[in-house]
Design a binder for these strands. Structure first.
Length: 516
RNA sequence: GCGCCUGUAGCUCAGCUGGAUAGAGCAACGGACUUCUAAUCCGUAGGUCGUAGGUUCGACUCCUACCGGGCGCACCA
């Protein structure tokens, strides 16, 4: 990772030169590229301590750093106000950008954690909607990113195939089968009618269809965990026993409660109702207990915002059950809802009204890559609006094609290369080449940050920028029409660009077409 | 009422641990295809970053209040 490398190199230099402020070194990217490739604000940070004006501090530091042999002909430091602007030489950029994905500098630290990522976990009583699509795409990208950054991670879909809703669901389908009307509190979606004419188990059929929809957008799971098995195995009893043994359980008004307020929840929660039945929560506690028992050291749950009120209690349960867990070992990603618009009007997404657009329909209309990119390019916290008509109309304008087109162009060039590769000469970079290479060599920084913050949209944004840099380069720097060392240099840039682009797209689960 | 999320260009959204002149795509307008893929590029226009205070050398970013939007506040699942 280039920024990490730069930081460490600077820290070493600060040690050698006996400069103050080593701990204040922070590498940032200037918005205005004219300032430098990277920058530090150390002059400002150090001023209170040294009681010198920031510009003087920056100037002194630059002066010292420029005398370091290791930086000669590679990095130039120049002061501006309290900043230290850092500029790489062309040859140094070239050197660094040769293998941005696979060089020693690109390595991620190893990790010995064992992560379980649970996501989607939609009710099996109906088709998935666009919101599910969002958590699905988000989760699968996060899984890919964490795996890429050396984490051991498994993914799981929790199937709520027990409880009242399942009974209601079966009753709804059965009623139609014998020609009766659906119970008032039953499921009324049109898909229920479709299920009623089939001979297969409607629940199995629903799950099959969910899997199919997810599969179409490249979302898969290492495991599908059935709620039913928890009841069968007695896991629910066990989990409650454990909580009881630890003293977090009490009885009141005939019900058995978990004192979740001990762990930051705003009210205590019922585990066993007065009528003796387990709550949904109790079963979920048992489910999370199995996660801990299966040896996971870090849990990540992706919830829709409509379930965020559930976070505090389930976190409380895990903290109560797992002694060596603290808050940072249990992460929640809350995906805000997607409001689906049609003709400028909000379309209800309720399964029970029957008036909803399924994820599959959206995929049918605009395709997997466009769906994935649309849902992944925005942060999980943003409330996105998905206008079906607009999406359909603009599907060809989806930014994902901008990125894919860049890849296709690269492939096309490489297909047309003929003869032996010319020899490289002295490196001299045009503006567009320089910008592209700088973008290329920071790919692993982006992947790392993306993974660490569980924010795949950062990678998506980066790829947009990278594609833009490539298109600029393509327009201003003829490749196959150049000759000799220039041709050699540009071909190499093309090769690396293609590698990085397809690498980034694959991490997002989006295809990198050879031609378009 | 309480809690979580949110308010940035006409629209949809980026803006990384506070940094230098707030960005992209789409839409609009004007240009560039006898050319390595025009699904592209160049240019123009578009903003009191919801409002008001505060902290700081410096605030879209942090704090407080207010206004607006989404979601959640079961012995339902």
């Amino acid at each position: 990772m280039i920024r990490l490398y730069l930081k460490q190199a600077l820290e070493a230099a600060f040690d050698d030169l006996d400069l103050p402020g080593k701990s204040l070194i922070a590498i940032e990217l200037p918005k205005n590229k004219a300032h430098g490739d990277f920058a530090m604000n150390i002059g400002f940070r150090l001023a209170p301590e040294l009681k010198d004006p920031p510009p003087k501090i920056s100037a002194d530091i630059c002066h010292s750093l420029n005398s370091v042999d290791a930086f000669k002909n590679r990095i130039v430091f120049s002061p501006a106000a309290g900043f230290v602007n850092i500029k790489f030489s062309d040859s140094f950029i070239w050197e660094l950008a040769q293998k941005p994905v696979s060089s020693d500098l690109a390595e991620f630290p190893s990790s010995d954690d064992k992560i379980l990522l649970e996501y989607v976990s939609a009710n099996p009583t109906g088709p998935l909607h666009i919101g599910h699509g969002r958590w699905a795409v988000l989760g699968s990208a996060i899984a890919r990113l964490l795996k890429e950054t050396n984490h051991h991670i498994d993914t799981e879909f929790y199937i709520n195939d027990a409880g009242n809703q399942i009974k209601v669901f079966y009753d709804s389908v059965s009623a139609l089968k014998v020609g009766e009307s659906i119970p008032e509190n039953g499921y009324h979606g049109s898909y229920v009618k479709d299920l009623a004419v089939l001979d297969t188990d409607p629940l199995d059929e629903n799950i099959r269809q969910q899997k199919q929809a997810l599969d179409r957008i490249s979302v898969s799971f290492d495991a599908w965990f059935s709620e039913k098995t928890l009841h069968a195995s007695g896991e629910v009893v066990t989990a409650i026993e454990v909580l009881k043994k630890k003293g977090f359980v009490f009885e009141e008004s005939g019900a058995i409660w978990f004192r979740s307020t001990d762990f930051g929840d705003d009210k205590d929660r019922v585990l066993i109702k007065a009528d003796g039945a387990y709550t949904y929560f109790a079963v979920d506690v048992a489910y999370h207990f199995t996660k801990i028992q299966r040896g996971y050291t870090r849990l990540i749950n992706i919830f829709g915002a409509d379930h965020h009120g559930y976070v505090a209690r389930i976190r409380a349960a895990v903290l109560a059950l797992a002694i060596d867990f603290d808050k940072s070992d249990f992460n929640f990603v809350i995906g805000q809802l997607v409001s689906l618009m049609r003709d400028g009007e909000n379309v209800r997404m309720s399964k029970r009204t029957g008036d909803m657009i399924s994820l599959e329909e959206v995929i049918d209309e605009i395709g997997s890559d466009a769906v994935r990119f649309f849902l992944i390019q925005k942060g999980a916290d943003s409330h996105v609006e998905f206008d079906l008509d607009l999406a359909k109309k603009q599907s060809s304008d989806n930014p994902v094609f901008y990125i894919q087109y860049a890849h296709a162009r690269l492939c096309s060039i490489l297909r047309k290369v003929e003869g032996e590769a010319p020899k490289m000469g002295t490196i001299h970079l045009e503006k567009a080449e320089r910008e592209l290479l700088l973008s290329l060599l920071s790919v692993r920084d982006v992947v790392w940050e993306s993974a660490k913050s569980l924010s795949p949209h950062r990678l998506a944004q980066y790829l947009m920028g990278l594609a833009r840099s490539f298109h600029h380069f393509y327009e201003s720097c003829p490749i196959l029409k150049s000759e000799g060392p220039v041709l050699a240099q540009r071909l190499q840039i093309v090769i690396v660009s293609k590698e990085v682009l397809s690498y980034g797209l694959s991490l997002l689960g989006i295809s990198a077409p050879e031609s378009m």
